[in-house]
Simulated assay, not measured.
Amino acid sequence: MPWPLILRLDECAYSLSVVQRTAYAVARDYEIKVQVQDQQITLLVTPCANSINTIPPSSEAVQERVLQALNDFALRERIQQETAGLRELLIRAALTGCSS
């Protein structure tokens, strides 16, 4: 497989924070260089020299793993945004209960 694997992402679909978390999550096996330009994020994925994988995976397997991590972190971010008000309300109620 020719390296690096290049993935182009729309910044509307994946925030930079999600991309950075994904890069960290797969850092044991892959190095990901992140480039941001206009509304597009480009990932350059290469295997780590010290990876425990002795047989390099196919480009499809690498792309699947990265996309799975991207979608996972994007969903987590969306859930966090949508439940922020509820979390604040629960924290406020808990703190109010502690002071009485």
Rank of each mutant, 00 (worst) to 15 (best):
M1F: 08
P2L: 12
P2M: 11
P2W: 08
W3P: 00
W3V: 02
I6A: 11
I6P: 04
I6S: 08
I6G: 03
L7T: 04
L7E: 05
L7F: 03
R8L: 08
L9V: 00
L9W: 03
E11W: 00
E11C: 06
E11V: 05
E11G: 03
C12L: 14
A13F: 07
Y14S: 01
L16H: 02
L16N: 01
S17R: 12
V18P: 00
V18S: 00
V19K: 01
T22M: 11
T22R: 03
T22V: 05
T22G: 01
A23F: 04
A23V: 12
A23L: 02
A23E: 07
Y24S: 15
Y24I: 10
A25C: 07
V26E: 01
V26F: 00
R28Y: 11
D29P: 06
D29A: 09
D29C: 06
Y30L: 09
Y30N: 05
Y30Q: 04
I32C: 02
I32F: 00
K33L: 13
V34H: 03
Q35L: 10
Q35A: 09
V36H: 01
V36G: 00
Q37N: 12
Q37S: 14
D38R: 06
D38N: 11
D38V: 05
Q40K: 09
Q40G: 03
I41D: 01
I41W: 04
I41N: 03
L43A: 06
L43W: 01
L43D: 06
V45P: 01
V45W: 02
V45S: 06
P47C: 07
C48P: 07
N50H: 13
S51E: 05
I52A: 13
T54Y: 05
I55V: 13
I55E: 14
P57Q: 11
P57L: 09
P57V: 03
S59I: 05
A61H: 05
A61M: 09
V62F: 02
Q63H: 07
E64W: 11
E64P: 04
E64F: 13
R65A: 15
R65D: 10
V66A: 07
V66H: 03
Q68K: 09
Q68Y: 09
A69T: 04
A69N: 08
A69K: 09
L70A: 06
D72G: 07
D72N: 12
D72F: 13
D72E: 12
F73L: 01
A74L: 01
A74Q: 03
L75V: 04
L75H: 10
L75E: 10
L75Q: 12
R76Q: 11
R76G: 03
R76N: 04
E77F: 01
R78F: 09
R78H: 07
R78G: 02
Q80L: 09
Q81K: 10
E82C: 04
E82K: 08
E82G: 04
A84D: 06
A84W: 03
A84V: 05
L86H: 10
R87W: 12
L90Y: 10
L90C: 13
I91D: 15
I91E: 15
R92A: 14
R92I: 08
A93N: 14
A93M: 14
A93R: 15
T96A: 14
T96K: 15
G97Q: 15
S99G: 13
S100E: 15
S100F: 14
